[in-house]
């Protein structure tokens, strides 16, 4: 009995439970055929969701109104710039990645500049900067599709016993970020700002510096995702970031992080990312199209937020 109540107090467990349920439903539909492959593919794609969602989660945790809408554009710009500079050369992989990170840093500084110096609300600031970033990507790339270095392509698609290496790496990163969030001054400050920004400032916390770091970090995660995704899919495409805006918000929210800020959960990101991808797989197996997928994603986000918001207000 106690186990059950503990379970219900941990909303992020729902994400894992839902992911497993959807996987079993898919496996049952195909009578167990390819269930292992489905899981392996799910881990591959969930990895990309998780990378951007970690950054988005830190931003969302900063409190109401904080969200980064420039993630898709940042992914596209970092992907195109790094692929073009690497020009398919294996020895350029590391410099290429550093360039992607640099793109992320520039975007993050641009966002914070708009938010802090010009005092534009984050949603509008990141929305307008995303148009500038996306235009930069179009201008830089001019429709060319440069192939990634072969070693990068091999690395992003490699698997050990069915488990993608990239997924293992991102699980490790997620674990590190979990510690950063819960056991470092930086992480605790992010949570404190989200719960009460004024109180955090009065308590002497470095609110502005932490906000700055968080937006830059989010952009760097988005840029890294653009880099590995471009490596994975054989080159950068101008629309490669498109579905990651809704996905990043969805993964954060379904994973049990509060949209109002101040409460976040990293393990839930993995549960939610797997759930979203397995849901798509299930709908595809059942023969339903893109329309139903978008519809369900939207409905699930709204449902989760409405339920989460309702339960918190009743607790107080």
């Amino acid at each position: 009995m106690k186990a059950i109540t503990t379970f219900f107090r941990q909303p992020w467990l729902f994400a894992f439970a839902a992911a497993i349920a959807v996987w079993i439903a898919t496996a049952a539909f195909t009578q167990g055929q390819g269930a292992g492959e489905v899981l392996s593919v799910a881990f591959t794609f969930a990895t990309f969701f998780v990378i951007v969602a970690i950054g988005q989660m830190f931003v969302v945790t900063l409190g109401p109104g904080n969200v980064d809408l420039s993630i898709p554009a940042t992914m596209t710009l970092a992907g195109t710039v790094s692929m073009k500079i690497m020009d398919g050369l294996n020895w350029m992989i590391l410099p290429g990645y550093l360039i992607a990170v640099a793109v992320g840093v520039v975007v993050g500084v641009l966002n914070v500049g708009l938010i802090r110096v010009l005092r534009i609300p984050p949603i509008i600031a990141t929305l307008s900067s995303s148009f500038i970033i996306q235009s930069a990507a179009i201008w830089y790339n001019r429709g060319l599709r440069v192939k990634p270095p072969t070693m990068l392509a091999d690395f992003t698609t490699a698997k050990i016993a069915g488990m993608p290496i990239l997924a293992l790496l991102v699980i490790l990163i997620a674990a590190v970020m979990h510690v950063v969030l819960n056991r470092t001054i930086y992480g605790r400050t992010v949570i404190a700002i989200g719960q009460n920004a004024r109180a955090a400032r009065l308590a002497g916390l470095e609110v502005n510096r932490v906000r700055f770091l968080t937006y830059v970090m989010c952009a760097v995660f988005a840029a890294s995702c653009g880099y590995v995704l471009a490596g994975f899919s054989g080159g950068a495409a101008l629309n490669m970031g498109q579905e990651y805006l809704l996905a990043s918000v969805a993964v954060v929210v379904i994973g049990g992080t509060s949209v109002a800020g101040g409460f976040s959960n990293i393990p839930g990101l993995w549960g939610a990312a797997l759930f979203l991808f397995l849901l798509v797989t299930m709908l595809n197996t059942f023969g339903l199209g893109a329309g139903v997928r978008l519809l369900l994603t939207g409905l699930i986000i709204i449902a989760v937020i409405t339920l989460a918001g309702g339960s918190r207000s009743s607790e107080r």
Partner: peptide
């Protein structure tokens, strides 16, 4: 944002 996904779907 959620509704725009639902509606577009």
């Amino acid at each position: 944002l959620g509704i725009s996904s639902v509606g577009f779907g």
